[in-house]
């Protein structure tokens, strides 16, 4: 009987944690529709989030996208060229970068930069009674802090994913000109002949799902801090781990649904 007790406690805690996070998500979506009522205070938070998550991540995203696009072209040409299948490199670029890598790599960068920042900031706000301050002013922390961050991260991630695609494709052409000179128009006409609207839509859809998940998880973990500053890094680590799990899992689900439907 005593051996079962820890197991029971674990399931009880997991269940209550799941219910709590589910209700947190529902409340955030409910508040999303009344965000305009608090735009006079929440809009600045939203703009700052877009600036931090989107604009300030551009150099890193550019570097990564250009490099990956270039590496795929170099490796693809190197391997496929030996079999006389050089044109397949465009299929690989579209499949790997546009459908998969752009959204997942951008999401990982957003987790590393913004997910950790959101969780840490909100955790410290709890410790410093700043959340209590908002409540005492009648301001819902979910409206003011969470909704603006969710919208900000989604907008930023969506934009970064599109930017990643463009930069990776451009990087692919740029690198290919160094090693296997290709005409600009020929490169892009070959690439676009392999690309469909569905390829772009699936990447965009993923970025929206990832953005919502990352922001919600990071905000929830930050606001779960209760008493001590030592909880802040613990919650941040949990936010990172859960966000990565969420991104990978939802990526598999969306990709599977795309091929099944």
């Amino acid at each position: 009987m005593n051996l079962l007790r820890p197991l029971k406690t674990f399931f009880k805690r997991s269940l209550s944690g799941f219910v709590e996070s589910y209700l947190f998500g529902i409340e955030t979506f409910r508040r999303l529709f009344t965000f305009h009522k608090q735009k006079q205070i929440g809009f600045t938070v939203l703009l700052r989030q877009i600036l931090f998550t989107g604009y300030e991540a551009l150099p890193l995203i550019s570097f990564l996208a250009l490099s990956i696009g270039g590496l795929i072209i170099i490796q693809g040409n190197n391997i496929l060229g030996n079999f006389g299948q050089g044109q397949l490199v465009y299929v690989i670029l579209v499949t790997v970068v546009v459908r998969e890598l752009s959204s997942i790599l951008t999401a990982l960068i957003v987790i590393a930069r913004s997910g950790t920042a959101i969780s840490t900031e909100l955790g410290n706000m709890v410790i410093n009674e700043e959340i209590d301050l908002l409540l005492s002013c009648g301001i819902s922390p979910i409206s003011y802090l969470v909704v603006s961050r969710v919208v900000g991260v989604v907008v930023a991630l969506f934009t970064l994913t599109i930017f990643f695609n463009i930069a990776a494709v451009f990087g692919g052409w740029l690198f290919s000109t160094f090693f296997y000179p290709i005409n600009f128009n020929y490169f892009f006409s070959q690439l676009f002949s392999q690309m469909t609207i569905a390829d772009i839509l699936i990447g965009v859809l993923k970025s929206i799902i990832f953005g919502i998940g990352i922001a919600l998880i990071s905000c929830y973990q930050g606001l779960k801090v209760k008493l001590a500053s030592t909880e802040v890094p613990q919650r941040t680590i949990r936010a990172v781990v859960l966000s990565i799990v969420f991104v990978v899992f939802s990526d598999i689900v969306v990709t599977a649904l795309f091929y099944l439907l």
Binding site: E121, E129, E130, L133, S136
Partner: peptide
């Protein structure tokens, strides 16, 4: 309106 025991403000 409520006045905190400690001087609480939004730090950012």
């Amino acid at each position: 309106a409520y006045v905190f025991e400690a001087g609480v403000h939004l730090s950012n």
